[in-house]
Design a protein around this nucleic acid. Sequence first.
DNA 1: CAAAGCTGTATTATCCATCATACAGGTTCC
DNA 2: GGAACCTGTATGATGGATAATACAGCTTTG
Lengths: 284, 284
Amino acid sequence: MKSAVEPLKARRIYLLLRDRIVAGELPPGARLPGEPALAAEHAVSRVTVRRALDLLDKEGLVQRKAGSGTFVHDTRAVRPIVADLSNVLSHLIDMGRSTDVRLLSFGYGVPPESIAESLGLKPGERAQRSVRVRLIDGEPFSYLTTHVPEWIGLTYSEAELAARPLLELIERSGVTTERATQAINATLAGPEAAAALDLEIGSPLLTLTRIVYEPSGRGVEHLHALYRPDRYSFHMDLVRTGSDGERRWSPALGWPRAADKSKSEKSKSGEKPTRTPRVIKQRS
Amino acid sequence: MKSAVEPLKARRIYLLLRDRIVAGELPPGARLPGEPALAAEHAVSRVTVRRALDLLDKEGLVQRKAGSGTFVHDTRAVRPIVADLSNVLSHLIDMGRSTDVRLLSFGYGVPPESIAESLGLKPGERAQRSVRVRLIDGEPFSYLTTHVPEWIGLTYSEAELAARPLLELIERSGVTTERATQAINATLAGPEAAAALDLEIGSPLLTLTRIVYEPSGRGVEHLHALYRPDRYSFHMDLVRTGSDGERRWSPALGWPRAADKSKSEKSKSGEKPTRTPRVIKQRS
DNA sequence: CAAAGCTGTATTATCCATCATACAGGTTCC
DNA sequence: GGAACCTGTATGATGGATAATACAGCTTTG
């Protein structure tokens, strides 16, 4: 009973380099240390370094040139950053990007206790469970598991769910949705999510758990979403609010949605970087 | 050249079980399948299943009883969920929890390109870089890397940074901060962050990147934060806004901050679950 | 062109995770 | 008590990841 399961060495180095790249320490185009140098630096064999670089290569983060070196791939191209807070991909759509939904699972049953509780179901009461995957430009980026009380779920068909937003169907059933709570977190990809999102098991994922309430306070939808961090992230603009001594950041409401920067190009350059939604495909 | 580096089998099973637990599919107190059963189910040896269970045990998610079985530990106790959006831990403090900051690194140098760009620095211009770890009740939960333009950084000392909020120091220097952008994402823990957060390399982490701007549009602080997802997550309340056809969720502003639920206990039970900030320590 | 450095590739040996199996000891239930 | 489960522990065998080394071919630099 020793040796806790630790990631393979190649993976360690892969992670390390990956962090240095995404952190910008190794800017796009830069040539990173040679394989012998990396091997010495991390006290591993060159073969292992190679494996790490292979991973980075397969992921499109670096580009290897025989005889020359390994170079950081143009990150901007590889990171088709999808973004938005509070709501989802609203402005993606009117940006000419095609989104698609695939229904993986649909059925009724007794949900796990924690979900039943948040939906205000009595023990044994059934709910509709569905699993969907969202694609952007053909590439999967989110894995959604939703639970809805049975009496609401029965108001629409499986085909309708595959075609329309769930919340729209819920509201169509006569329920009004006003309030919701959500929590954002991180996890590792389990087998199913990894398969659906075209990832390896153990990849990092962004998590969003949202519970939608009707005015009476009863839960009507429990959403558990997993996002690929390289294809999705939450962005928000903040403003400093509160009077002295109690100043905090608050989300900038009524903000210029997807602010087509045509409007504010007054100041010089660094207006709002990291906001270059170019439409470039990533290698599958 | 085959076999991509795939996570160890034990880790796979660990992740699988872990997901089923946090998803509530295996509710607290439940006995999970016996080791032989799990071994058969996943087509691995019992030894491997054992390793996976050891990980869950060490993490405090399950409790093993010789001769009896392996049981899901009381999740509520194990998840001292810290939370808040937009700002950080505001209400934690007035909840009687002690937070502490540890300065790991402090110095000046030329920052990586992407950060220099967001701070509006000219190539070669220097910035102050600091790395801090935040603890709650003695346990580390966030790993903060900040970059500040040199001319601001010079207005305070290393000791001051270790003692007071950075933004306060920045404002004290005469700069006014009004706007900020931030992005939330997920990654895997690299070596340094893993060590500082008392995690294994490859653990999932919540990421927050915030850039604070002064009114002129120039960046004055670049913050990169890594959070342990089991000790921190972003919560927010949402309200449905926008007129028909363009309805979306918006963060509920002006909400009862840290709503001491003494106020709204009108409706029955399920008012706002998952909001039970009991102060229970987790095993180190 | 030649030297130096790099990536690609192969070989052999070692180490560690995993497998398969067996047994000891505790718990539960009849 | 005893059967049937469970967890804890140990064994040797096997395969894959890694180490150490060597060499080929390409690129860059002088």
